[in-house]
Amino acid sequence: MKANKAVFKARSKPSRSKFNVAKTKLALLSIITLSLSACSSLGVEPWERDLLAKKEMALTSSSIDAALDDHIYFSKEASSGGKSFGGGGCGCN
C-alpha cells in the first residue's frame, strides 16, 4: 500500500520531475521487491504437492486439445498465442 501511495504522489507533482522520476523508480523497486518477497512466502513444501501433481492441475492439462484449439482460433480470429507461442506455420482460412 505504501508503495502505491508513493507512485500517486510522484505523478501529482509534475514540476519536480527529476526528483519524481527517482521517487517513482524507488516505488517500482519496492513493489518488485515486495512482490518477490511475497512470492517467497507463497508456495508449498515438496510433500504438499499431492494435488498440484495431478494431471488436471497442470497449466496445460491436455496439450492435444490445446494444439487443436490453437489451430482453430488462429485460423478464425486475429489473435494467437499468449499462453504459448503464437507461431506461424499455417496458411489456414
Binding site: C39, L42, G43, V44, E48, R49, D50, L51, L52, L59, G81, S84, F85, G86, G87, G88
Partner: peptide, 16 residues
C-alpha cells in the same frame, strides 16, 4: 513470411 516470437513467463504456486 517470417515470424519471430519472444515469450516471457512466470509461474507461481500459491498454496496446496
Amino acid at each position: 513470411k517470417s515470424t519471430a516470437d519472444i515469450l516471457l513467463g512466470f509461474t507461481q504456486v500459491i498454496n496446496r
